[in-house]
Every structure is written in C-alpha cells, then in structure tokens.
Design a protein around this nucleic acid. Structure first.
Length: 276
DNA sequence: AACGATCCCTGTTGGC
DNA sequence: TGCCAACAGGGATCGT
C-alpha cells in the first residue's frame, strides 16, 4: 500500500519529468477520481496548458505547483500507482487519469480500487481541504520526541490508531505504523497517553529509522495489487518487514511469535513477547 | 472534542 | 475444478 516511503519514491521518480514541462492534455476516464474537486469540471480546465513548477509531498499527498497558482494534488489511495511512459505507449487497465506533457511523456494514474483521487485546487480551496489539517510530515518535519510525547498526551485511543491519524502525524499507514511500533517495542493497543516519555524517544527514532530504511529499498510492494515505481520496478522493502504480514512467523528480534489482531477495524501485526 | 464504526471499490484469495 | 464470499485499507462521514 502506498504510504510515505512509496509516495516519496514516486515523487522522486516523477519530479524531473514533470518540472519545467507543460501539460498539453488531460484525460479523466473515471469521474470518481475527481470526487474531492469542489467542481469536477474545474480539473481539466485548470490543468491544461500549465507548466509544472515543482513537485512536493506532504504525508501521502503528492502535490505539484502549476504556474497559474493551482496545486495539482494526487493521492494514491490503496491501489494507486503512477506510470511514467511515452505518450504512445499502450494504456493498461484502470488508467483512470492521464496527464500528457509536451515532452511526449504521460503521467498516468492507474488505480483499480479508486480509493485514490486527484484535484486541482486554488489556494483558497487548498486551505479549505483536509490537506490543511495534516500534521507534520513524518519524514521531513518529524517532531522531536518531547513534542511527539505531547501529541499523545491525554489521549485514550490506541497508539496504533493515533499513528494512523494524519492530523497528528502525516505519512504513516497500516504497514509502517506496525513496523514503527515493533521497532519501538510498544504494543499497538496501548493508550496514547500511556506512552512514557522514554518510549516517545524510542518511537521517534523508530519512525525515522523505519522510513529511512524503507526509502532506501524503494518502499514496499505487496503481492496482490503491487505498488510499483513509476518505471515499473517493485519496491523491495517487503522482504525486510519485521511485523506486518508476518502472522505466525518468528519475531526477528526475540524469537516470539508474531500475532495478528484487529484494532480499529484494521489488521495489526505485533510481537506480544517484546512489544509491551 | 475524542473516539469508534461504517462506507467506498475491485482484484485476489480461500473455503467448500 | 469452479464458484462466491471474504478480505485488503485511506480517508470521509456519521453517531455517540
């Protein structure tokens, strides 16, 4: 599933092709992809003939600045990926949004389950969107452990749920939340407010190490609807996961058995022997 | 305000 | 072997 490392890997892969290029055509094959656009008819109109100035990211949101002050937002959802190919390449199934650049390259958003979306926001619309509610970016703006501890203070929800709340910290999803908690030796159901300051220090370090490590391997491609890099390669972090998807397997740290438990309607994988 | 549940969607998987 | 229900999950929304 695309989480911060996968989105950042995508950003790095598409930035050079997008920046300085002009958008010549925009095709939307599935209207559902525009459900976050206040007026869906605005999307193509605002994108066409604009030059991409820069490509950024906040949490799992990919954001490109256009020279008309529009912010082009892409969220990969759970099955979305970007394909960067010559414009005459054959269309694969579920190529829901196709952005053609004047350089002869297509930016194609392929998303079978359509949990992802695109939008072209004015500055005011961006301010009104949920993007303005995002917490600090877990990679580029990770809070210090004292601040992280403060974000969790007084909260009764499970730490796992709080790590998934993008308003608290932006970027972690189900895979990396589990990986982070395993590295920090914290059980996922613990109330956020019960996380001690020393644990918050471990948690901060775990977030940084997990994300840095995953980024080095190009993210995680799971076996089903594999996330792929824009050039079609797989992300190889899947072989290095310590908790996620490892139900019944040995904990690589203590030799205990990883279990699967549903927390907040989401699968959580963790080691009861070394995560307290 | 905080918390928890539900919904959206479809390719894949597992059980019968 | 073939069919179909269950499953996966990010974020919005709603009820408590």
């Amino acid at each position: 599933m695309p989480e911060l490392p996968e989105v950042e890997t995508t950003r790095r892969s598409v930035a050079a092709a997008l920046e300085g290029s002009r958008i010549s055509q925009v095709g939307v094959a599935r209207d559902r992809m525009l459900r976050r656009q206040p007026n869906p008819a605005d999307f193509v109109r605002r994108m066409r003939n604009q030059e991409v100035v820069g490509v950024g990211r906040h949490g799992k949101f990919l954001m490109a600045n256009l020279d008309n002050d529009i912010t082009w937002v892409t969220h990969l959802g759970m099955s979305g990926r970007i394909s960067l190919v010559p414009s005459d390449a054959p269309l694969v199934a579920h190529s829901n949004v196709v952005v053609t650049l004047d350089s002869g390259i297509d930016f194609r958003f392929v998303d079978p389950r359509t949990f992802g979306f695109v939008a072209a926001y004015t500055p005011d619309e961006l301010e009104e969107s949920s993007i303005s509610q995002l917490g600090r970016d877990a990679l580029t703006d990770l809070p210090r452990s004292r601040q992280l501890h403060g974000l969790l203070a007084g909260r009764s929800a499970p730490i796992k749920a709080l790590l998934l709340d993008q308003r608290i910290l932006a970027g972690l999803g189900n895979i990396y939340a589990d990986e982070t908690l395993h590295r920090a030796k914290i059980a996922p159901h613990r109330p956020g407010g019960a996380v001690a300051s020393t644990e918050a220090t471990a948690l901060r370090r775990a977030i940084k190490e997990t994300l840095d490590h995953a980024l080095r391997y190009g993210g995680t491609s799971l076996d089903d609807l594999a996330y792929l890099l824009p050039d079609g390669r797989t992300g190889d972090y899947v072989d290095r996961l310590r908790a996620y998807g490892r139900e019944g397997e040995r904990c690589r740290r203590c030799g205990g058995t990883i279990i699967r438990e549903v927390i907040r309607q989401r699968s959580s994988f963790w080691c009861p022997q070394c995560q307290q």
